[in-house]
């Protein structure tokens, strides 16, 4: 077994050396880097949000998202908000519920249907994104989104994070921390922060894997999707609503 491994290692390093000889430096990056498989539809990223665990007034998830994605965190009408805390009061029972609201990563996203250039798109792994190289800033997707999940960048930006480019005149929204996923990580900034705060209200994972924690829990507890009546099959599930 170990001999086998060694041999594979040897083959790999000699291949690498050969490669280095042919094209100096070219292969270094490709080998050093983890993920070279394209996003695949065997994965569907999603979340289960347990509103019973979500604490009223806590906005650690929002802060973490802003930090991760380099958002300034303003809450004026023209400021970008990828995730927001919503406080709900049931009109009949008076019960107060608190939950984080963001792009629901629909399987049938209306924003994708209406986008004239195809800049709004759904990745094979279910993440709904805006290709900001194609976005012309018409804002039709914002009109179409039933969740008001999208923001338009109203001002020129400076000092964006290298991994999270953003810019004036284009529409953006929650990416499920795609930069983390593409590095092979398995959690989003908001879920991580929520766990850190001890609430564990946000469970992130692969909905297509029946053995993932999130899939198991969705099978066990009663959960709903927001505006399920629209039939958009969102990737975000909510518990306790």
């Amino acid at each position: 077994m170990s001999g086998d491994l060694n041999r594979r290692e040897f083959l790999r390093s000699s291949a690498m050396l050969a490669g280095l000889a042919v094209a100096p430096g070219v292969l270094l990056y490709d080998l050093a880097h983890g993920k070279d498989q394209p996003a695949s539809s065997s994965v569907r990223w999603g979340m289960l949000i347990d509103t019973n665990q979500c604490e009223e007034g806590c906005d650690d998830c929002v802060k973490a998202c802003n930090k991760e994605n380099g958002l300034p965190g303003g809450t004026g009408p023209a400021d970008e908000q990828w995730i927001r805390k919503v406080e709900l009061k049931n009109i009949k029972t008076g019960k107060i519920t608190s939950l984080p609201m963001m792009c629901q990563h629909c399987a049938e996203p209306p924003c994708v249907d209406v986008c004239p250039t195809g800049a709004s798109f759904k990745r094979a792994d279910g993440i709904v994104l805006v290709d900001r190289h194609l976005c012309i800033g018409c804002r039709y997707c914002m009109m179409a989104c039933p969740y008001k999940a999208r923001s338009f960048v109203h001002e020129p930006l400076h000092d964006q994070k290298p991994e999270v480019p953003r810019g004036k005149g284009t529409v953006e929204s929650c990416t499920l921390c795609v930069q983390r996923i593409d590095r092979g990580e398995n959690t989003t900034a908001c879920a991580e922060a929520c766990s850190k705060a001890g609430h564990k209200a946000i469970l992130f994972g692969n909905l297509n894997d029946p053995d993932s924690e999130v899939s198991k829990r969705i099978r066990e507890v009663a959960s709903t999707r927001i505006r399920a009546d629209l039939g958009l099959d969102p990737g975000l599930h909510y518990e306790g609503l």
Partner: peptide, 20 residues
């Protein structure tokens, strides 16, 4: 420009990454 399409749509960080 080719790299950006591949990265954004398929999630593959490539050789011609602008970050690099």
């Amino acid at each position: 420009k080719r790299q950006r399409t591949i990265t954004v749509h398929q999630g593959v960080i490539g050789r011609y990454s602008l970050i690099r």
